[in-house]
Simulated assay, not measured.
Amino acid sequence: MLLIFGWGWRVKHLRTLTLRCARCGTTAAHPLYRRVLKVSLFFIPLIPLRTRYTIQCTACGVQTDVDPAALQA
């Protein structure tokens, strides 16, 4: 019996925020992404293992993790 499994990140763009970057100090657009690590069986994503929310500065490219509780406010 052959069993094919693996894992991979699924990325979804949620919205774009205008923020001041902590690294470069530029006020720029920061897309907010939800990244979910899922286990796949026969190339079908089944079980989510980890969820992360990140923003990325469009000026310098730095990615920063965001606390999900801060998104609720």
Rank of each mutant, 00 (worst) to 15 (best):
A70R: 10
R50C: 12
T27Y: 01
T26E: 07
T26R: 10
D65Q: 07
L14I: 14
V62H: 04
W9S: 13
I55K: 04
K12M: 05
V36E: 09
F43E: 13
L49Y: 04
I44N: 02
C60Q: 07
T16G: 08
V39C: 09
R52C: 02
V66I: 14
C57F: 01
T58H: 01
C60H: 04
R34T: 07
K12H: 10
K38W: 13
F42P: 00
V39P: 00
A22K: 14
P45L: 11
G25P: 04
G6M: 11
T18M: 06
A29K: 11
W7M: 15
L3A: 12
V66H: 01
C21S: 10
C21R: 06
R52Y: 03
Q56N: 07
I47T: 13
T54A: 06
C60W: 01
C21A: 11
T54H: 03
G61N: 09
T16W: 01
K12S: 11
R35I: 13
D65P: 01
G6W: 04
A22Y: 01
Q63D: 09
R35H: 13
A70P: 00
P68H: 11
L37C: 07
P31K: 03
T26C: 02
R10I: 14
Q56G: 03
V36S: 12
R15F: 11
T16N: 08
A73T: 14
